[in-house]
Nucleic acid binder design. Sequence first.
DNA 1: GCTCATTATGCTCGATCCGAGCATAAACAA
DNA 2: TTGTTTATGCTCGGATCGAGCATAATGAGC
Lengths: 349, 349
Amino acid sequence: MVSDANVRRIPRESLERHHPKGTSMRQEAPAVEIGLNAAIVAVLDNEPVVLVVREDGNGVQDSLPSGPFSPLKHRTFEGGLRSWVSEQTGIDLGYVEQLYSFGDRGRHAQPGDEMPHVVSVGYLALTDASQIDEAQRGSWRSWYHYFPWEDWRKGRPAILESEIVPRLREWAERPQLSGDPARPVARHDRIRMCFAVDGGAWDEEKVLDRYELLYEAGLVEEARRDGREAALSWSPVPRPGAMMRFDHRRILATAIGRTRAKIKYRPVIFELMPPDFTLFELQRTVEAILGPHLHKQNFRRLVEGAGLVEPTGEMKTRTGGRPAKLYRFRKEVLLERPAPGVRVKPGRV
Amino acid sequence: MVSDANVRRIPRESLERHHPKGTSMRQEAPAVEIGLNAAIVAVLDNEPVVLVVREDGNGVQDSLPSGPFSPLKHRTFEGGLRSWVSEQTGIDLGYVEQLYSFGDRGRHAQPGDEMPHVVSVGYLALTDASQIDEAQRGSWRSWYHYFPWEDWRKGRPAILESEIVPRLREWAERPQLSGDPARPVARHDRIRMCFAVDGGAWDEEKVLDRYELLYEAGLVEEARRDGREAALSWSPVPRPGAMMRFDHRRILATAIGRTRAKIKYRPVIFELMPPDFTLFELQRTVEAILGPHLHKQNFRRLVEGAGLVEPTGEMKTRTGGRPAKLYRFRKEVLLERPAPGVRVKPGRV
DNA sequence: GCTCATTATGCTCGATCCGAGCATAAACAA
DNA sequence: TTGTTTATGCTCGGATCGAGCATAATGAGC
């Protein structure tokens, strides 16, 4: 059944090198440091916010809570992340999921640094806003502060037409660098798909694609910092959105995209809600994250029909009109449906 | 807007320690080695197969092609992976996506080893079976060889009732280990959701959940190898599915689950197809991966209606009946729809 | 050449889902 | 009391989808 042919093709030494018995391989595989980073997300007053660490001193740059993974202290990545976040911010994380591991050289490097290579493992954590105490409030910032073009709650953001799309088009017309055949879709098509121009539809989940396109085009500050040719050779313009340290804005982009995707097929939206809530509060929270494409009555039908919530029996007055029933998350859905979530249709804006 | 309160809460040293300027921090953050692993998947004669490296000698164990990440040689993880795979197997990978990074201690450890801590970054690669040359054939194995309970192509696999579910139920009744409150869903509920008993529905995407449940219950060989209490303290039974080295079966489980999920909303199925194919061949390939819940006529309607394919104009004779039109992937869908894929409904078996 | 088995392909019917809007209910403010 | 505001119930038409019927085109066996 299994021939020996391929055993010859796969030199045994390469496996030995990878997992030697008792010998060191520092030579072959220089050790790297692993940084654990958390995008901790909440929704505060209908605004999606992320916990950042502000560093005063030289240029102000926000970063995500993070710390190195220490195999001696941490049994798992997630455990290490939880203990770092707890130590740095006092928060005990609830829902946590791994996003992506970034190993790029260059992205991370600060000019002049001689630091060991750092690999980032990004995590998404969702938390209930009621847990945020006053002292911490200041370090929570709207995620649209870093991604203004993602905020469609008041319709298509003006910054797209005023700044982003024109400059992207300009970039698309510039001569391509040599040897970039790994991009089958032409630049204009990428712009069209990412930013919903020329009849393309806005896909709220493509947050990372948009950020990477802007990075490639030199239109975010990080591109200049990292010495991207595109950013150095043209357009000394103000670049949209606040930058972050290292590759943290990229991790945040991944976090936003994942959150937007995930609430549609997993009931993670309730991680962001207090125990009791009205259906309209739930809708507002979903809209804060996705954008406002929701029809109120249909949203109710959807959420109730899916068995995601159950009435508590209580009412909330002071809504500005008729009192609203309070609901709570109905945990039993997890046992009933394979993919419960707020199944809003994608890409309808 | 941003208070200084939290700056005090986040000790600056912890950040310095993480990213010092010019100093070494080996002390605080022991360096680890990063292993890149690829689950390279193809569909060969309607069988989903994965490329494995067989190691003869002592106990036969398959592993995935892998190698250490070397920041000096590799600009990115993905680049490193491609060069390792190319070197070990001669294959130039096409479609590649990152799956997950595993940092668990213990899983990886071989008893008695004193090796440095190894972190695994798992990748999924999809490739066209026609690229497999004869010499390599032997090292491609059905992924159901490692996960027999995932093969629903002939209906619900008998091994579920004959072995897996009874033993899981037995495990569920055993006294829980102290302090396992991180499991809100009781064991029986997890069994129900994972393995579709007691009215639960089979969700073909939950491959990893099932594997991890079996691991926890000591019902896969790896659990014993890693010294899991559950596996050591009971049930010296034959354990279903072939084991793999290190945590490779876990990575493969992730790969299968991701493949099953992804073909529904991205046209990655065509990575597994030759350039021209009939609609029924396409359906067979989808079924090889998902299980056979597809109605032939509706599948045609779905695939053609979504604009995923276009006729080449050629016909394929020798189908055993009426000749079939040949189709090719219609790449333009990528520019038309935000989430093109074979939108088979999840969880209908 | 005729018949039959086999596969390909086109079409229809009914259930369900979903977007959109109408209509009513229950609070508060002027 | 009236008007405004928010909550909630319901309906209608279009789109989607599961399921099945019906026809078309090949090769095999006679």
